[in-house]
Computed example of a mutant assay.
Amino acid sequence: MATSNLLAYERHEDYGQNALIYKIISPTDIEIIEDTTISLEESKIYSYLEESSQLESGIFSEAQKREEEISREQYSSEAIITEDSLALVKPDLVSTEAAKITRTSLKKYEVKEGDSVGKIATNFNLSVDTILWANNLSVTSYLKLGQTLIIPPTTGILHTIKKGDTLKSIAQKYGATDATIKEFNKIDNDSLLVIGETLMVPGGRIIYTAKPRVYTAPGSATTYTAPVAVSGKMLWPIGCRHITQYFRGWRHTGVDIACAYSSPIYAAADGVVSRIQYLNYGYGYNVIIDHGNGKKTLYAHNSRIEVVVGQVVSQGEIIAREGSTGRSTGPHLHFEVIINGSKVNALNYIR
């Protein structure tokens, strides 16, 4: 009877083999799962508290030692049941305790093929800015194969202690709290700060403060001498060519170029500064240069303006610094070319 066969008593060593299901399905229909051998490589830890920037093997923090022990316990406790070359392997579960352990030391990472700052940051559960700041990189920097990067232990910024630094001043500089710095670095008071050593500032960030150049605003009667008309292509107005938005007619009247914050912005051609505005909306801090013969250029969202109205500028002269003032979602230059009052595709005029 089928029912009694399904419920038949069996010995432990051949459990299930006398059941009707087992008779129907042969062992050849069962997927074979091969045992695998997992090897643990010796971790290499970079100590940022030492003056010598080198990797040391065999030196672990207490948290790292515990993490290593947990990993070994997991591998040694794998429940593997084998019979007749068949295997059932216990799923590889992540240890909750190990996952809670926070790395407290710097690591060195060698750039591999296909790497990007964003990919590396994701792999180490850090922000992109954390990687950029730790390695003195900008958003336009290129990674080279084999390049060595410093990987901080957590999102934030590394600070080299200088004379006069206090935990409070460091925290204020990076928008963090002194309590967080104390806890992460195991420092109770300012007397333990050593000039030249490096602190991790968890959650810290570089705070950019736009400081516009002070100048005397021109009166309504201010006039300037019209420049000689320029001909041919104009100069690319900034030091990188990372275009984030193109000219789209009335929808977007210029071209957006994103370089590093505070990158110098250059006059695209000889001319005279005809207008400067410091706005908290729209174009933000912006400059217009009159190049004569109805041709003008506009440079917007600057963090700092380096010229004044009426000033004669030469092609390639620094007129401003890249920023994110006005209606902007991040540091970039919004560049426009204006011909006889109409805004045209700037890429047709710059080289």
Results as ranks from 00 to 15, higher is better:
residue 79 A to R: 09
residue 250 W to Q: 09
residue 290 D to H: 03
residue 246 Y to N: 14
residue 186 K to M: 08
residue 158 L to F: 09
residue 253 T to Y: 10
residue 18 N to Q: 11
residue 260 A to E: 04
residue 320 A to T: 10
residue 13 E to D: 10
residue 329 T to C: 01
residue 57 S to K: 08
residue 88 L to Q: 08
residue 323 G to M: 00
residue 275 R to N: 14
residue 54 Q to A: 12
residue 140 T to K: 01
residue 165 D to A: 04
residue 251 R to S: 15
residue 65 K to Y: 11
residue 278 Y to I: 05
residue 82 T to C: 06
residue 186 K to V: 02
residue 211 K to H: 04
residue 150 I to S: 14
residue 351 R to K: 15
residue 163 K to M: 08
residue 10 E to G: 10
residue 23 K to S: 11
residue 53 S to Y: 08
residue 181 I to D: 00
residue 70 I to K: 00
residue 70 I to V: 01
residue 280 N to W: 09
residue 262 S to I: 06
residue 165 D to M: 06
residue 118 G to T: 00
residue 231 S to T: 01
residue 167 L to C: 03
residue 312 V to S: 07
residue 5 N to D: 14
residue 168 K to Y: 13
residue 106 L to F: 08
residue 142 Y to S: 06
residue 342 S to H: 03
residue 331 P to H: 07
residue 251 R to N: 12
residue 313 V to T: 01
residue 310 G to Q: 13
residue 149 L to T: 06
residue 4 S to P: 07
residue 218 P to S: 07
residue 153 P to V: 11
residue 95 S to L: 04
residue 10 E to A: 03
residue 102 T to R: 10
residue 277 Q to W: 04
residue 99 A to D: 10
residue 318 I to N: 12
residue 25 I to L: 15
residue 65 K to W: 04
residue 203 G to E: 15
residue 261 Y to K: 06
residue 182 K to L: 10
residue 314 S to P: 02
residue 228 V to R: 12
residue 288 I to L: 10
residue 157 I to S: 12
residue 224 Y to F: 12
residue 124 F to K: 09
residue 297 T to D: 11
residue 229 A to M: 07
residue 208 Y to F: 07
residue 6 L to H: 05
residue 302 N to Q: 07
residue 49 L to S: 10
residue 55 L to T: 00
residue 37 T to N: 11
residue 347 L to Y: 01
residue 141 S to K: 03
residue 329 T to M: 01
residue 297 T to K: 08
residue 338 I to P: 01
residue 81 I to W: 05
residue 151 I to P: 15
residue 280 N to F: 03
residue 333 L to H: 05
residue 350 I to S: 10
residue 332 H to E: 13
residue 335 F to Q: 02
residue 214 V to N: 08
residue 296 K to Y: 01
residue 42 E to S: 06
residue 167 L to I: 02
residue 164 G to F: 04
residue 195 I to T: 09
residue 85 S to Q: 08
residue 241 R to E: 12
residue 234 M to F: 01
residue 20 L to Y: 10
residue 305 I to R: 05
residue 130 T to R: 15
residue 219 G to R: 13
residue 251 R to M: 13
residue 19 A to G: 13
residue 347 L to D: 01
residue 52 S to V: 00
residue 210 A to Y: 03
residue 153 P to R: 00
residue 138 S to N: 07
residue 279 L to M: 05
residue 10 E to Y: 07
residue 27 P to Y: 11
residue 328 S to A: 13
residue 351 R to Q: 09
residue 65 K to A: 03
residue 174 Y to A: 00
residue 153 P to G: 15
residue 269 A to T: 00
residue 290 D to T: 00
residue 227 P to G: 00
residue 121 A to C: 11
residue 310 G to Y: 13
residue 62 E to F: 05
residue 258 A to P: 02
residue 83 E to H: 06
residue 115 D to G: 13
residue 265 I to K: 01
residue 152 P to H: 06
residue 44 K to H: 11
residue 33 I to L: 10
residue 212 P to G: 04
residue 189 N to R: 06
residue 222 T to F: 15
residue 50 E to Y: 08
